[in-house]
Design a protein around this nucleic acid. Sequence first.
DNA 1: AATTATTTTTAGATATGTCTAAAAAAAATA
DNA 2: TATTTTTTTTAGACATATCTAAAAATAATT
Lengths: 217, 217
Amino acid sequence: MNSLSEENYLKAIYKLREKNNAPITTNAIAEAMDTKASSVTDMLKKLSAKDLIHYRKYQGVRLTSRGEKTALMIIRKHRLWEMFLVKKLSFRWDEVHMVAEQLEHINSDKLIEQIDKLLDYPKFDPHGDPIPDSKGRIETQKVKLLSGLKRKSSGIMKGVDDHDPSFLRYLDKEGLALGCRIQVTDIIEYDRSLKISVDNKKELYISHEVAKNILIG
Amino acid sequence: MNSLSEENYLKAIYKLREKNNAPITTNAIAEAMDTKASSVTDMLKKLSAKDLIHYRKYQGVRLTSRGEKTALMIIRKHRLWEMFLVKKLSFRWDEVHMVAEQLEHINSDKLIEQIDKLLDYPKFDPHGDPIPDSKGRIETQKVKLLSGLKRKSSGIMKGVDDHDPSFLRYLDKEGLALGCRIQVTDIIEYDRSLKISVDNKKELYISHEVAKNILIG
DNA sequence: AATTATTTTTAGATATGTCTAAAAAAAATA
DNA sequence: TATTTTTTTTAGACATATCTAAAAATAATT
Ligand SMILES: [Mn+2]
Ligand SMILES: [Mn+2]
Ligand SMILES: [Mn+2]
Ligand SMILES: [Mn+2]
């Protein structure tokens, strides 16, 4: 078995890879994990010895297939727990991440399979992120950033890129939730802020920064 | 916050006290935790410094009210999770303990209150043990050991003292479950084994050892 | 290509939780 | 009460995971 710390490193490496598709550097991991580069180096040696990553000094790192499988199982648990908290325990989408960070390390195959079943095998979590199935397979949805849409174009809100609770609560306040139909009514050139209509009902102004973190599909 | 190890010690101390109602010795804790006396001494100093136990060298130990409250909250979480696993995720009563040992350390007030609510505030866990409420209050049921019952006397099976999976599966196989009406039909003097009737339907022979671990109320 | 700056690794320290072996205290026995 | 046995604590070691500071390797600039 892998320690909590090892699991968190694997997850961080997986997510860095997902974002950049470039070799993953010690410093990038250190920043993602909020720790020091020297600590990362120590852990990389450990993960390498366990054949969870490919690691050559100074050359960056990537997951082995064993490492990737392990990372995917942790992410599966994280996202299923988030879904469980929202669907079964009335958590809001801005409250679930912190608790899921703990629950993702619980080790029981039967537990996670039963949670999956109870939720009727959801494909996406409360933030629109895909949930790997029990084999580690992911169903990706093709999405664009709202900030990249042209005037008059529209789509369905499918996810968010920033998971910060304050961002999510802001979206709640403005009535922006997954599944909403969003149309770009106007683009203000000066600061690239947007005027949008939500579900063809209300109109709303949002900043470019906000639009950059909303996924439309 | 307390570490996982600290939480497990507090729980062990609480349970030793529950059994014996005597001062709790270093060796007793070591045996309960499957560790060495020297490790226990180290931890007792730590818990004492945190004002979770009263500890004087060589004099044994007891929980402070803070320590007891903490222990009760861990036990509350353990038993609620066991109940959740049985009632919502189709676990058998012999499978839940190991998983609950992990889940009891998840730290989220909202999570445990919502689990409690989802289960409609159960008073007893799948093994008949009382579940402390959110204030730490316990509703005890007065029970006797089945091994202590006289011939012809009867009662309802309310709990088990041994939580070993193999014991629980044995009870399943014999059709002995919480809520069954059990009547002592005969007592074999030679080995104190019992002939019992279950729900006035089937007759069954059980050893004294088994009877000692069944609670009747 | 040589120098400088940045990144990464190593060396050595600290904190937690564990262990074995030895010392100290308490309990049991003679 | 003195001696022996048992229990408990201390001393010192080890593994994990972290840190700071220094050294080494790589990358960027002149
Ligand atoms: Mn999350
Ligand atoms: Mn999520
Ligand atoms: Mn249990
Ligand atoms: Mn139980």
